[in-house]
Design a protein around this nucleic acid. Structure first.
Length: 423
RNA sequence: GAGCCUGUAGCUCAAUGGCAGAGCGCCACACUGUGGAUGUGGAUGUUGUGGGUUCGAAACCCAUCAGGCUCCCCA
């Protein structure tokens, strides 16, 4: 036992119960995506390293990606994100796609980071994007898809909120405060850290990165102004659309949401669990205008977001929203009386399957008590036994494991009786 | 990449330098054509791994692996 080779650090093993939870999320992701007309797609899991190196900082790529040299000497990476693959695939067919394109994907990603709660090295991520439309209403649609997902898994607005901001709005505010362009990255970092730091330390840090007292005061009042969105035509339209889409109770303007400066150019948003149990965002995204130009395509605006399965899974688990795991997809067990009658049980199981039931048959003759115990542990609803008496008369004993009631019926009538008890 | 905490039976955890234990779960039997409940009995184990200190280590020290918290990062 102790000599078992361990799983790779930061990976997760999906036993049937975890697989069930993962597929639950996948199913809800699919439903929310398809409800809005998005098509499922995927890219390769391995990409040339330069696909990421071109866009992201090289240090980040080298430090936080799983990279290796293949046998042909090519530098490749396990994909750390999907957006560059999306950009390339869109650019390659830019002339023939029917815009606006609505695509979603759910697949594995790898990042070489230090594993901790809510973060693993191998995870699944939902990506969903609309490309070729740049209206505030398109932004609203993506936020509504996210809200629809939250609602569909039972995460009410009191449990989760989507915070919305807009980079252009913030830029104009930074302009008004005379914060120079080359300080914007630092200021974004500063804003991101505000919740994590004590206010005195945070203010000291603000002065440290070169803000003057006047700018700091301006920034503080800016970050406390939750009516600021009214000054942005874009956000005003987005919020109007969100109301029409019926998800207004999920969204709230928050000037503290920045999402870095990497490629977001307009509206940005992040969903959080309001209990604060997990401090990481459930999902986050926004509008980007320059994506395709980076991979050689024609300029094309897009909006999208990504959701990892780790944080979402923890929150759903804690909220008790993952449905009860069923140990077996079958609800019927056909027992085996003894060696002589084993073929009868196998034949009966086949008949029941042909009648459309999911049926397990005990794979070897053993004490009936043990077989019923097994059926109970596997949460079977019905057990069917063909003993000598039943076999002699072409019958089967059908027992409801919920009520304990048992009836002997002809084999031909067994399926119907089982179906009745499964209801 | 840095700091801190944790690691004991399948699970949750006791044992603070002196015989490795409890509860739950598991197995057997009571019950040779039938689960859940009950009773009786049984097995839980390289104390994460490797080394060191000691008459003696689960405990103390060093290293290492894994998980967690914080920083960093978050494409």
């Amino acid at each position: 036992m102790k000599n078992i080779i361990q799983a790779v650090k930061g990976t997760r093993e999906f036993y049937p119960e975890q697989m069930f939870a993962r597929n639950f999320i996948y199913g809800k992701v699919r439903a929310a995506s398809e409800m809005f007309g998005y098509q499922e797609w995927d890219g390769p899991f391995i990409e040339p390293l330069e696909l990421y190196a071109a866009k992201s900082g090289e240090e980040l790529v080298k430090k936080q990606s799983f990279t290796f040299e293949d046998r042909g000497g090519e530098q490749v990476a396990l994909r750390p994100e999907l957006t560059p693959s999306l950009a390339r695939m869109i650019a390659a067919k830019q002339g023939e796609l029917n815009f606006p394109v609505r695509w979603w994907s759910f697949g594995p990603f790898w990042r070489y980071e230090s594993p901790q709660r809510g973060r693993s090295r191998e995870f699944f991520q939902w990506n969903i994007d609309m490309l070729g439309a740049d209206s505030p209403e398109a932004d609203a649609e993506l936020i509504a898809v996210g809200a629809t997902f939250l609602r569909s898994v039972g995460l009410s607005p009191s449990l989760t909120q989507i915070y919305v901001n807009n980079r252009r709005l913030m830029d104009s505010q930074f302009d008004a405060l005379d914060i120079p362009t080359d300080k914007r990255v630092d200021v974004s970092n500063l804003v991101d850290r505000r919740a994590k730091m004590e206010s005195a330390k945070w203010e000291a840090y603000a002065l440290e990165i070169g803000l003057n007292q006047n700018q700091l005061d301006g920034l503080k009042s800016l970050l406390g102004n939750f009516d600021l969105w009214k000054q942005s035509e874009e956000l005003t339209r987005t919020f109007t659309a969100l109301e029409a889409l019926g998800v207004k109770d999920y969204v709230k303007f928050d000037p503290n949401i920045m999402r870095g400066l990497l490629y977001y150019t307009g509206t940005v948003f992040e969903a959080f669990d309001t209990s604060g149990s997990v401090k990481r965002a459930i999902f986050g995204g926004g509008r980007y205008d320059n994506l395709l130009a980076d991979v050689g395509g024609q300029p094309l605006s897009g909006v999208g977001f990504a959701m990892g399965d780790v944080v979402a899974g923890i929150i759903l688990q804690e909220a008790g929203l993952i449905p009860e795991f069923q140990p077996s997809p079958a609800q019927v067990l056909v027992t085996v009386f003894d060696t002589t009658l084993l073929p009868q049980s196998f034949a009966l199981a086949a008949e029941l399957r042909a009648a459309g039931l999911n049926v397990m048959v005990y794979p070897e003759p053993t004490k009936l008590q043990k077989q019923f115990k097994f059926a109970d542990k596997m949460k079977m609803k019905v057990a069917v036994t063909v003993g000598p008496d039943e076999a002699a008369n072409g019958q089967a004993a059908v027992k409801s494991l919920r009520t304990g009631e048992q009836v002997v019926v002809t084999r031909a009538a067994a399926a119907e009786k089982i179906r009745e008890w499964l209801k």
